[in-house]
Amino acid sequence: MIYNQVIEALYDLQNSEKVIFKEKKFGIISNNSLGIYHKDLKVIAKEIGSDNELALQLFDSGIYEARLLCSKLFKPKDVTENLMEKWVKTFENWEICDSFCMGLFSKSSFAFAKIIEWSTRKPEFEKRAAFATLASYCMADKTSENELFEQFFPIIKLEANDDRLYVKKAVNWALRSIGKRNVDLNKRAIEVANEILKFESKSAQWIAKNALTELQKENVRMSDYPRDIYRISVFKTIFKG
């Protein structure tokens, strides 16, 4: 597909009622939106396949759904720091923020650095990008040991008092994601959540209580990353038994 064909396909799916529905139901306020659901964009993205040049053209169109499509077409390994900075400054809601963070940023070689840097940003969705990237990075990085992720706990504690809805939700998401990497990080995340619980702000209280509810479940699902350590230890336990 060439650029004009994709734009035409997007306009064929235009639905103004969905723009209103997404805003009322999910709080997704977007400029120049056509009202297309993610599931429909995934169909288009699957048909096209990876295409960096087309992805960049679509982003520069300024059409909201074209920008979402960019996050599905661009190759994560080709993401540059300049592109990340260009894109993050345009985020206007959680949907597009998370689409780029989950699909591209968390899989890029700049993920760690940008998590640290963006966590101090003032704009709501630039700061959210730090923690949405971190939450996704917990799943994207399957080999790093616990020490790398423990470095993020002080940042999570520092930003837990930010009471903006989409920041505090992302901070909570990041804390829960670290706590679901393996049994040891689960224990550490629970400890951190209990430390945050002592903070006075409403946002910190919510972040901590919500995280503890999930991380302390008896059947909490964990990824056992890195698996060469945690899966092997589980197998050893089973065979010893």
Rank of each mutant, 00 (worst) to 15 (best):
R231Y: 06
N210K: 13
I229R: 11
K72R: 15
I63Q: 01
K168V: 00
Y137G: 00
A193M: 09
K217H: 08
S99Q: 14
K22W: 09
T80A: 10
N146Q: 06
G49T: 10
I115V: 15
K217C: 08
A113N: 13
R67N: 10
Q57M: 11
L56M: 13
Q205T: 11
R128K: 11
Y166H: 10
I178L: 12
K180M: 15
A208F: 05
K180P: 02
F149P: 00
A66M: 11
G241P: 05
V167S: 00
I115Y: 02
E126H: 07
A174D: 01
Y64E: 07
M139E: 11
K217D: 11
E124W: 04
I238Q: 11
L73R: 05
W173Q: 01
I63P: 00
E200D: 15
I7D: 01
G241K: 15
R176Q: 14
L212F: 07
T90G: 05
L185Y: 02
Y37D: 14
A113P: 04
N52S: 06
I116C: 04
R188A: 13
G35R: 10
Q57D: 12
P154N: 06
Y137H: 13
N182P: 09
I116W: 05
Q151C: 14
A140G: 03
S223H: 10
E218F: 10
L104K: 03
K75H: 11
S61T: 04
A130M: 10
K39V: 10
A170K: 01
L73E: 02
F125H: 12
F239C: 07
G103L: 06
Y37C: 07
W118K: 06
M222R: 12
E145G: 07
S61E: 01
G179W: 01
I48W: 07
G35L: 14
Q205M: 09
S201G: 09
D40W: 03
M84T: 07
Y11H: 15
Q14C: 13
E95I: 01
T237V: 06
P76A: 08
L73W: 01
N32Y: 09
K168W: 05
E17P: 08
